[in-house]
Design a protein around this nucleic acid. Structure first.
Lengths: 339, 339
DNA sequence: GTGAAAGCGCTAACAG
DNA sequence: CTGTTAGCGCTTTCAC
């Protein structure tokens, strides 16, 4: 292949360059570039032409500084690998882009300190922030709440923190899921949980514990919510003499299903398995995963609406948005095996 | 819940605010914030104190403007939902963060125009850009190559474009995969492809066609590389009277496996199925997916190394980096059924 | 309709 | 070791 080696590291053209080349003032270039109508069409056209030839692109940094806004939103998420979050972001994206906002995503290691650092950092660049399933502790959240830019919490409820929050009612959804299991005759469940730091995980476990009142005894262990974690946790779950394995999310459940298959344990004949999220794959992974469908679209919409309102200067609504999630029954749950 | 309604939209504190409050100059504040050692420890401590109380955070935009760099890298990716890309980004992340670079991710609709717009846009904010599986057409890529900031192409080879490229040798990997099928006695395959615009898709199909010489006849249809696309394409594949269904990627293959199961078609007894990528799930999804393992780690490393070199002012290496991918045989492929 | 000039918040010489 | 000053590239009054 021929190298077109003329990658002359020409200094990036600026308004000045374009202005000079077009024989106009920088003000005019600026006006043309930002599409202000009060410029002579012919002149505007010429400027555009020149700008194009020079490959001119306004500097985002300079623009942001002058404008006091880069028209961008930051999203901080724990796990790029979990498709679940993708849909939420996608939905926010469509709301945001209608209003000319760009969405910038930053992921982090999962460590709360690291997450806070990422958020703090990002906040210096964007107009608003959305934190997905944040594990930042309360003091950190309080700090964020004190900043002048809007910050919204999705999938996390932090009482006493003055931040808009949008959550799915995991507690009730999990309760329903447990009720489904109880009705099938299950009396003993093993919970392969998520991170001990995740609010959602605590909620889900709280619901499982509450189901004790209806005769469902349960034990838990924590994992990191990945396929491999589910796979690895399966033997533990089996040791619990449980007839049902309740998983923190779908990915974990897939791992469990895989290991059970290897071990020759029949699902749902010998043991039932449940997930949480309802990923696209949940209906496809044999034998079909009983799970909870999170309303991802509404979650994303609500997130955008909240930041947008704040961005527009509306007062913060202190009431958290609570969304309902629905149990989806598929092949992975069935009547409890009578020992 | 009590609203701590004192969200006074105080103007964001600046270096000035902090400097005044601490009785020092803005320069000192700047020095303290950027951790320059040449400041009296006691003074530095006081400034930090004040900054903290005021909740001061340097503006990224201003910093970027003054420094001429925001120490950030943009990654443009087609599909946040595909975990495959996650690992690549993660790996880049670890290289980048060691050097103090942040990574900002932007996804797009998949439309080449939209992708180009996203890339152009992002280029105004970041120091360098990595395009994953880009579908931008050649003129667009040429434009990007003319910009003064480094742009690197991952998973796309564009001859005649002066841009560093890092690709996995899909062609040879697919050839190997086909050879595996031929050895199992398969003579007729159906290819459930990806986007007609994706270079990787063209490469893979090219390899399948080339396998015709070894007795493997094949037909193709395009899809969008999702689970549901695979699911939907299955009947078409079956109509081809093929004994093997070769899929663009693992997600598509999962969809195919799911539909086959519904239809009561045995895998690999009646038909063999292959994927591409080797997602974590590939070994877990029954009956285990034969696929091609993409060296995601090295891919991410190479991407970071390339941008980093460019950022450091080293001359661009015109030679594309070519990585080898390996066929992983699992339960989804077996001897061809003799009709 | 267009230009001159000031300033967004920060950093980097350059003095002291 | 610390303050003064001059920009980084863009937008935006304010005159013309």
């Amino acid at each position: 292949m021929i190298s077109h080696g003329n990658r002359m590291p020409v200094a990036r053209p600026t308004v000045r360059t374009v202005a000079d080349a077009a024989g106009v003032s920088t003000a005019t270039v600026s006006r043309v570039m930002s599409g202000v109508a009060t410029v002579d069409p012919a002149l505007a056209e010429r400027v555009r032409q020149v700008a194009n030839e020079l490959g001119y692109r306004p500097s985002g940094a300079a623009r942001g500084l002058a404008l006091g806004s880069q028209r961008s939103l930051g999203v901080v998420m724990p796990d790029l690998a979990n498709a679940h979050f993708h849909y939420i972001v996608k939905q926010m994206h469509s709301g945001a882009s209608e209003h000319g906002y760009r969405i910038l995503i930053a992921d982090h290691s999962g460590d709360p300190e690291d997450e806070l650092a990422t958020a703090r950092d990002l906040l210096g660049y964007v107009d608003g922030l959305v934190l997905l399933s944040s594990r930042i502790r309360v003091e950190g959240l309080r700090w964020l709440a004190r900043q002048s830019r809007p910050v919204v919490l999705v999938n996390r409820l932090a009482p006493g923190v003055d931040l808009p929050m949008i959550v799915v009612d995991s507690f009730h959804a999990m309760l329903e899921l447990c009720s489904h299991l109880v009705q099938l005759g299950h009396r003993r469940a093993a919970y392969v949980g998520g991170s001990a730091l995740a609010w959602q995980n605590l909620e889900r476990w709280r619901a499982i514990e509450a189901s004790g009142a209806f005769g469902l005894a349960a034990t838990q262990m924590n994992s990191d919510g990945t396929v491999n974690a589910g796979y690895a946790a399966t033997e533990w779950a089996l040791d619990q003499e449980a007839t049902a394995i309740v998983c923190f999310n779908d990915l974990t459940a897939f791992g469990v299903l895989s290991r059970l298959r290897e071990l020759g344990v029949d699902v749902p004949g010998d043991v039932s398995v449940t997930g949480f999220d309802d990923l696209d794959l949940a209906r496809h992974f044999p034998p079909g995963l009983t799970t909870v469908r999170i309303p991802r679209g509404p979650l994303g919409d609500a997130a955008w609406d909240r930041v947008h309102a704040l961005l527009a200067g509306e007062p913060a609504d202190p009431e958290p948005t609570l969304l309902h999630a629905e149990v989806i029954v598929r092949g992975s749950t069935g009547p409890a095996r009578s020992n």
